[in-house]
Design a protein around this nucleic acid. Sequence first.
DNA 1: CGTACAATTGAGGTACTTCAACTTCCGTGG
DNA 2: CCACGGAAGTTGAAGTACCTCAATTGTACG
Lengths: 228, 228
Amino acid sequence: MLHHGSIDQFLTRVADRSVVPGIDALARTVRVTAAREVPLDRHGATLVYIASGAAKLVARAAVEREQVAAFNFTGDLVTVPGPGPHAYVLVALVDSELVVLPYAALRDAVRSDPAVLARLLDNCDAALGRCREKALMLGRKTASERIACFLLAMAPRIGATSGAAILLDLPMSRRDIGDSIGLTIETVSRQFSLLRDSKLIGTEGRSKVLLLDLPGLELRAGYQQNPN
Amino acid sequence: MLHHGSIDQFLTRVADRSVVPGIDALARTVRVTAAREVPLDRHGATLVYIASGAAKLVARAAVEREQVAAFNFTGDLVTVPGPGPHAYVLVALVDSELVVLPYAALRDAVRSDPAVLARLLDNCDAALGRCREKALMLGRKTASERIACFLLAMAPRIGATSGAAILLDLPMSRRDIGDSIGLTIETVSRQFSLLRDSKLIGTEGRSKVLLLDLPGLELRAGYQQNPN
DNA sequence: CGTACAATTGAGGTACTTCAACTTCCGTGG
DNA sequence: CCACGGAAGTTGAAGTACCTCAATTGTACG
């Protein structure tokens, strides 16, 4: 039986094997071009696997007031919440290949499959951990701390080591960054300039950021060493 | 074999049965009095079941700058993150009975137990959903919207219907509320006063809040009906 | 009933936003 | 290859929502 390549990739990465009973009836492969919203069935939560590309999970607080709940990259698994007090949409940041599944139906299909459940739980734990760090940032950090936190959080996810420095090729705009960390584009821009002046980062073009001084950035981010 | 009552309760609620192999070696029952930090092994993440009481999960952004990541109540399951860029502690809001387990060891013990994994996943999904709503609130809502959101979020968790209204007996202080929604105690207090003046809520003593007008509060909270 | 702490209320300060103008980047077409 | 044009980003000046500091009032516990 023939699978689309993205679903194969999803199965081997998420289930550690090529077959999950009933998955073909659920999974749908979608190509989405940059800046386009991922089309979803809106009857409940949706699970999206990013076979390639990058996306932002956006919550609408009001017209012209959006909060980026998460950025996700190739290989990531995202759950998009269903109906609730606020509407969530997934928007591609670059041309992307995605596998889309209704979350409830998937959960039911893998109900007695501990390996897949464990994988989903790992993924959810990681997302929760990142979301808590984001909440901390949004609630109790200054603008300059937020930018440093943001860059440090991106480093392990999309950073490439470049000598002693780390190179980030950010697929999101200043507006997306601002919507993610609760600032305006102007404030984001000013803070980037300040970090550049402090020699903590270097920039190249619109999207490339070079993290020059990680300890300095961690200090700026207000990272507290866990005292234990 | 004799279990402590709280562990029994944990097992029947989380595993839907009274036995999980190896659980006795892992689980520890703890009584914590109000305002006390829950003692945890700090080698990794910890799972805490609240057999009775209430607790706040606190992240330290800096000295005198705390963010409440979550409030949890009787019957809730909380994962406390282990070492990372910021330190997390769980603090009892009232006298509480808790079951404490090292998360990694528990995960290993239930590795091939789909029922427990599914329960943990349900719990994590719910926590992630609430955390995302909190991030939205912290990033893009005004002070008055935040208070309304907070009260509406508490309603289904600890609210008691009182005629057409909902009565909340809040176990947390104004400072805790402020640390949860990213405001100072003074701003929280002022917003409570404004809501009272608008007849959207009533208050009684320090802790009791009566939600008088849910549609009005939802409007004030900036809830967007999911358009689908 | 008195004390200690929590909450409220007021006045002034500030970090970030808003509004505006300018500059840079980069894809497109000459 | 270079020039053009529009969007993205940067920088500056003024405004505002929330914070900080301070004093008062309220609440619950001994």
